[in-house]
């Protein structure tokens, strides 16, 4: 973290789904910038910037049409459920000396002690809500899972957070756990045998008819 991505954004006069569709057709993505008690400003950015923007988890400086520059973070992205294309982006305006809340990804590091005892590691929480200054926002939080025993869990309160970062999510929630695998195979075999018997019975009935 620490880098600031510079992009240019232009005001879009009209809002609404039909206007947004027209924008997308000409290679623009509708975005909205809000924060600090100001009215939300509908804007648009070039689609070609998306690749850079989505890879960049930190601060984004937007150069607006009127010459002003706004320091923002990418807050939310709306995707099409089928094509997975970006439909709309939300940017939140921030100040460098003001705490912000954002979500960061969690990633396991190391091998849990419980795995050697026959357990399996499960990630229950994938993103953590944190509070920090904009420049301190980490790209992701690496969690050392080596201390988790069989049938044990690692909670939010046990996480080692980077300097200047505090977790907003409830400390009692589970992030990772090591569980004993369920013994499902014998049940399935029984269920299948029953299903096969039913199928055979129905086939016999048909033949009788």
């Amino acid at each position: 973290m620490g880098k600031v991505l510079n992009i240019s954004a232009s005001d879009r006069g009209q809002v609404g789904s039909a206007n947004s569709r027209r924008l997308r057709r000409v290679g623009q993505i509708p975005v909205v910038v809000y924060g600090h008690g100001k009215a939300a400003s509908p804007m648009s950015i070039a689609t070609s910037l998306l690749g850079q923007l989505l890879q960049h988890p930190g601060l984004v400086e937007m150069a607006c049409d009127d010459g002003s520059k706004r320091l923002t973070i990418l807050k939310a992205a709306q995707r099409h459920p089928i094509s997975n294309d970006i439909l709309h982006l939300d940017f939140q305006e921030v100040k460098m000396d003001e705490l912000i809340t954002s979500e960061v990804r969690l990633m396991a590091e190391g091998e849990a002690a419980g795995i050697r005892q026959g357990g399996q590691l499960e990630q229950v929480m994938f993103e953590l809500e944190i509070e920090c200054l904009p420049m301190d926002t980490p790209d992701m939080i690496r969690v050392d899972v080596s201390g988790i025993e069989l049938d044990g869990a690692l909670h939010v309160r046990d996480l080692v957070m980077p300097e200047g970062v505090t977790a907003v999510t409830d400390g009692g929630l589970v992030v990772f756990q090591v569980r004993t695998p369920k013994a499902e195979l014998p049940e399935e075999t029984e269920a299948e045998t029953e299903a096969e018997t039913e199928e055979e019975a129905s086939a016999e009935k048909k033949e009788e008819k």
């Binding site: 399996q120 695998p181 369920k182 013994a183 499902e184 195979l185 399935e188 269920a191």
Partner: peptide
Amino acid sequence: RVAATRRMQRRGQ
């Protein structure tokens, strides 16, 4: 469900 769990062989959820 049965097809997927069989391949997973008790691993995962």
